[in-house]
């Protein structure tokens, strides 16, 4: 654990400039992830969780100018400012991706086997024959029955769960050190979700990869992740080990999110617990804490300046909330 983290993000800010507007979807976020660990990044839509992971790797829509500042170091190499050909060498090889929708992530007119094999050919310089063999191994690895027959099938012949397994096999084809999974189970059923999460966790441990699990669902975090970053409106609100953050959330937003999940002992027909108000729209920079307008504990200090991420009484957990941190100072 003493070695340098595999991925170290410091004070990352992403600015997006389109023809008409300027947005800042990520504003000064820091986190790190070590080999063999899983980090969950949790946030609602528009919180910046996906952009934060994809922008430094050049995965942004065309027609948008992306300005990055801060530092993203992967295996000691700075990614910000890296040229596109150099980033391309990492993408899909040392860093694998799993996307939310397995249908649009696969090419509908090419056979499964070829789609996996081309990754091995490209990134590991394998011969087509060796790559086909590797594709078969990968399909076995992701737990698909009748693997040889699957290789000659097309994506539309497979169910959602099987497709997502194929997407995982493709992501693993380049032997990545880091796997970035963007909402890997959102498009799937609860039952299939449990299977895919188990598979990801299993592979991550077996292959000693680092994994970033991007999700909006607190439910999938507990079983899979070691650490968690909670994002709100482009900024990190709370981070720390899952065992601590989910059991004893400190930031009012994290508390509200966890509290909003229905529990078995809630009476039938009772009011659902939730957060008041709506998340802010991106665009206008927010002076103080972005969550202050929805926060029941907000004080004047919250709207004055942006609260820094500060270690709490438990030094593993950091929270960006003046009220929580002030309480600690007083104690």
């Amino acid at each position: 654990m003493q070695n340098e983290p595999l991925l170290s993000v410091k004070n990352l800010t992403v600015d997006l400039l389109t023809a008409k507007s300027a947005l800042r979807p990520v504003d000064g976020v820091s986190y790190a992830i070590r080999q063999g660990q899983c980090l969950a990044i949790v946030g609602e839509s528009g919180s910046g969780k996906t952009v934060m992971n994809f922008a430094p790797l050049g995965l942004m829509p065309t027609g948008v100018t992306t300005n990055l500042s801060g530092s993203v170091r992967f295996e000691g190499q700075e990614l910000i400012g890296l040229s596109e050909p150099e980033v391309r060498k990492l993408r899909g090889k040392s860093i694998g991706f799993i996307f939310q929708d397995p249908m649009s992530a696969l090419n509908p007119v090419r056979r499964i086997g070829r789609q996996i094999a081309e990754m091995a050919e490209l990134h590991l310089n394998m011969s087509p024959r060796a790559a086909e063999a590797r594709a078969l191994d990968l399909v076995k690895l992701v737990g698909i029955s009748d693997p040889a027959a699957r290789l000659s099938q097309y994506p539309h012949e497979l169910s959602g769960g099987l497709r997502q397994r194929i997407v995982i096999a493709i992501a693993l084809a380049g032997e990545p050190k880091l796997l970035i999974a963007d909402e890997p189970t959102t498009a799937l059923d609860v039952t299939v979700q449990a299977q895919i999460l188990r598979l990801l966790k299993d592979l991550q441990q077996r292959l000693n990869m680092a994994m970033v699990l991007i999700t909006h669902d607190m439910g999938v975090v507990a079983g899979a992740a070691d650490n968690i970053v909670v994002m709100y409106a482009a900024r990190a609100a709370e981070c720390g080990p899952v065992d601590k953050v989910l059991v004893n959330p400190r930031h009012p937003y994290t508390r509200g999110l966890i509290n909003a999940i229905p529990r078995r002992d809630d009476p039938i027909g009772s009011e659902f617990r939730g957060l008041p108000g709506v998340p802010p729209t991106l665009g206008a920079p927010i002076q103080g804490c972005a969550f202050a307008p929805r926060c029941e504990f907000a004080v004047a200090a919250c709207t004055r300046a942006r609260p820094p991420m500060v270690p709490t009484a438990d030094s593993n957990v950091c929270v960006a909330c003046p009220v929580v941190n002030q309480g600690k100072a007083a104690a």
Binding site: V190, T191, R198, V221
Partner: peptide, 16 residues
């Protein structure tokens, strides 16, 4: 198969 939020409970879960 509904996942639990509490990691202490979730880690006790057996295979899907």
């Amino acid at each position: 198969s509904v996942p639990e939020v509490d990691p202490r409970v979730e880690k006790l879960r057996s295979a899907p």
